[in-house]
């Protein structure tokens, strides 16, 4: 059940611009179309669908029989007041918060920007990393920290995304280099 955002507009500048704005805030699939293709707007396994459409497609969009969470017109004239025409709309001079508001209203979760390279590790991620470096399996880590294995895996993915190190022995070296594990009692070379 992935949220999906569809952008239909003939201008590439509008499509790309809108996509960039939406991408920074929402997880999920974003599809851009240069003209209205009804086949591509079909919903299926998608839980929530938001369609931003060029206002000229208003009549066709109105007839769409799919379950759509939100239909937002992209009005042609900036500064015009088309609220009488469309229930939901943005204009070319809408600000980022105004655009994002429409999507947020549908309940599509915002992406939390987890695991970007260069970000600091959270306290929990450091705990997981310490255990990974000491040779604990996902299951053992889960038991030790009272979390599910699934959560451990997701922490590990975020750790790898953030520090750019994938292999277990590489993570161990990272942990020792950054003094995350105390090597006073153990021989670090045994761990690697």
């Amino acid at each position: 059940m992935i949220p999906k955002i569809i952008i239909v507009h003939s201008s590439e500048i509008v499509r790309k611009g809108l996509e960039t704005i939406l991408k920074s805030s929402f997880a999920g699939e974003i599809v851009t179309l240069s003209s209205l293709d009804l086949a591509a707007t079909k919903t299926g396994e998608y839980e929530k669908v938001v369609i931003f459409y060029e206002s000229k497609y208003y009549p066709e969009i109105k007839k769409l029989k799919v379950q759509v969470a939100q239909l937002i017109a992209i009005a042609e004239n900036p500064g015009a007041k088309p609220e009488n025409e469309y229930e939901s709309f943005i204009t070319l001079d809408s600000t980022e918060p105004e655009i994002l508001k429409w999507v947020k209203d549908t309940g599509i979760p915002e992406s939390r920007d987890e695991g970007k390279e260069g970000d600091e590790l959270t306290t929990r991620e450091r705990e997981v990393l310490q255990l990974v470096a000491r040779g604990f399996s996902n299951k053992m880590i889960a038991d030790k920290l009272f979390i599910s294995t699934h959560t451990v895996i997701s922490h590990r993915k975020n750790i790898t995304d953030k520090i750019g190190i994938k292999s277990i022995s590489g993570l161990t070296v990272y942990a020792i280099l950054n003094r995350l594990i105390d090597t006073a009692e153990i021989n670090p070379e045994d761990l690697i």
């Binding site: 520090i163 190190i165 994938k166 292999s167 590489g170 070296v173 990272y174």
Partner: peptide, 10 residues
């Protein structure tokens, strides 16, 4: 491949 890339990054 993963490990040689880690070596570089470390």
């Amino acid at each position: 491949e993963m490990q040689i890339n880690d070596l570089k990054n470390l």
